[in-house]
Design a protein around this nucleic acid. Structure first.
Length: 447
RNA sequence: GGUCCCAUCGUCCAGAGGCCCAGGACACAGCCCUUUCAAGGCUGCGACGCGGGUUCGAACCCCGCUGGGACCGCCA
């Protein structure tokens, strides 16, 4: 798509009744991708016509969630634009105006305080979806449940507020939306909306529905599937880049390379290549993608990612130099799939306290201690405090005595980290520094 | 119950009639590397739901069945 199409306008229209859901994030993401790919505009519209459930706090939370994911919008309630206002609650006069027009034309009628749109039988309300292709529907299908009676469409509720199916048509048209990209759960709402577009004499936008995201049990994602808001992923230590990457892979693929940046995804994205099958969310894949992004981070950025988790664990992060901490994490690279895991697996760099807390040294038999003391003394005899020199010394020492390296490296690992796994133990020792290693050995009476 | 949609490894995606006795990724198993665990390298396991057509030829087209999903609210 060489020519930038500035007429392409898409929107994400959440209702502020909760934090940004993973499904909502997915929808917002695909709209963003299409806008950025085509050079069009991405609009944020708040659908707050449900008076009781909508709050300003949730509105802010949703915007924060989108920002966290790296999805920036061109027009919205916070930044304005030529097609505002961008909150449905501020557009009530518009909905009333067109409802009145439809009523005057005899297309709609009042029912108490509400206004209903009359559905006529025999109308073809099929449409071409950019993802699903031709969707065939007749207006005769718009029946009441368990009945053959046609069901008219409520456009204004008794409380004076517009219904979703009506407001969305008014707004998408007035905001000059070219492509309506939304979840597949809206596919059956589309024919009703087409009826409204026609009655108003407006052009119908292009529709593109996205496959649903399902839980492991193949049911629509909900609370009981664990993490459902993007914030839960943030709090578990997933990078925004990873969540973006993972979500982009649900219903679409960029080709051979599955780890990519927002920019690359935007460049490669094609609506016509979106899948139709509902996608099951796979936490394993999410972990893998996060680990890959964590590995690719530059040291200081990685530190910024891990730091809050160390702080949350109550570790004295400020006592250390940032560069030194970042280097410790470089040693950890590839270990830990989330920032939280990485923070937990590397706590011994920040403080000796967690080491003492989880290992008291009692599982080292007394008769082994003399040998270990000899070994550690040999290590401290090394003047060149580098991983290579220490390892060479350790190897020499163990070979001369015909003993196994692991029988001495493992105790050292426990002394320094309190864990049975860690990066190369000589690298850990060197990074901690001679004095700190000595201090930890002394604590366990091994030097 | 009605309407609409979907149907390739356990999962996510490739595949747009011959290039497919189906390819990649995650997960899983094994091997290598190794002081541990990861990472990395290699190997393996594993799918076109079923039945009819159409065609010289079908994972790809058509029909039926089965299975799954979504919707049927004065919620969005």
């Amino acid at each position: 798509m060489a020519d930038k199409n500035t007429n392409i306008r898409v929107r994400f229209a959440p209702s502020p009744t909760g934090a940004l859901h993973i499904g909502g994030g997915h929808t917002a993401l695909f709209n963003w991708l299409w806008a950025r790919h085509t050079g069009g505009k991405f609009i944020l519209r708040i659908e707050d016509t449900d008076l009781v459930r909508s709050t300003k706090e949730y509105e802010q939370t949703i915007m924060d969630g989108m920002t966290w994911l790296g999805l920036d919008w061109d027009e919205g309630p916070d930044k304005g634009g030529d097609y505002g206002p961008y909150r449905q609650s501020e557009r009530l006069d518009l909905y009333r105006k067109y409802a009145q027009q439809l009523t005057d034309e005899g297309r709609a009628y009042r029912d108490g305080e509400a206004v209903l749109f009359k559905v006529e039988p025999g109308q073809d309300i099929s449409f071409d979806d950019m993802v699903y292709g031709r969707v065939e529907v007749m207006s005769d299908a718009l029946k009441e449940r368990d009945s053959d009676k046609l069901k008219d469409i409520v456009i204004i509720k008794s409380d004076g507020m517009p219904t979703y199916n009506y407001a969305v048509v008014i707004d998408d048209h007035l905001m000059a939306i070219s492509h309506v990209i939304r979840g597949e759960d809206h596919i059956s709402n589309t024919p009703k909306q087409i009826l409204l577009y026609r009655a108003l004499g407006w052009d119908v936008p292009t529709f593109a529905h996205l496959p649903m995201i399902l839980g492991k049990d193949k049911k629509k994602l909900s609370k009981r599937h664990g993490a459902t808001s993007v914030y839960e992923y943030r709090d578990m230590g997933y990078m925004p880049d990873s969540v973006f990457n993972f979500l982009a892979l649900l219903g679409w693929s960029a080709g051979d390379d599955e780890i990519f940046t927002r920019e690359k995804a935007a460049r490669l994205f094609e609506l016509s290549r979106v899948t139709r099958k509902p996608a099951v969310l796979d936490p394993d894949k999410m972990n893998f993608i996060n680990q890959e992004h964590l590995k690719r981070l530059d040291p200081m950025t990685r530190l910024a990612m891990i730091r809050p988790f160390w702080e949350e664990m109550g570790l004295p992060v400020d006592k250390h130099d940032d560069t030194w901490l970042a280097e410790a994490l470089t040693l950890m690279a590839g270990r830990g799939r989330t920032a939280k895991e990485m923070a937990e697996f590397s706590d011994y760099f920040v403080s000796f306290d967690p080491v003492k807390a989880r290992w008291d040294g009692s599982d080292i038999a007394e008769d082994r201690k003399p040998g270990l003391r000899d070994f550690f003394a040999a290590l401290f005899a090394v003047t060149d405090w580098t991983p290579e020199a220490l390892e060479a010394q350790a190897r020499k020492w163990t070979e001369e005595r015909g003993v196994r390296m692991k029988d001495y490296a493992m105790p050292l690992r426990f002394v320094l980290t309190g864990m049975k796994v860690s990066p190369g133990i000589f690298e850990v020792a060197v990074h901690l520094g001679r004095d700190e290693v000595k201090r930890r050995l002394e604590h366990y009476g091994l030097i």
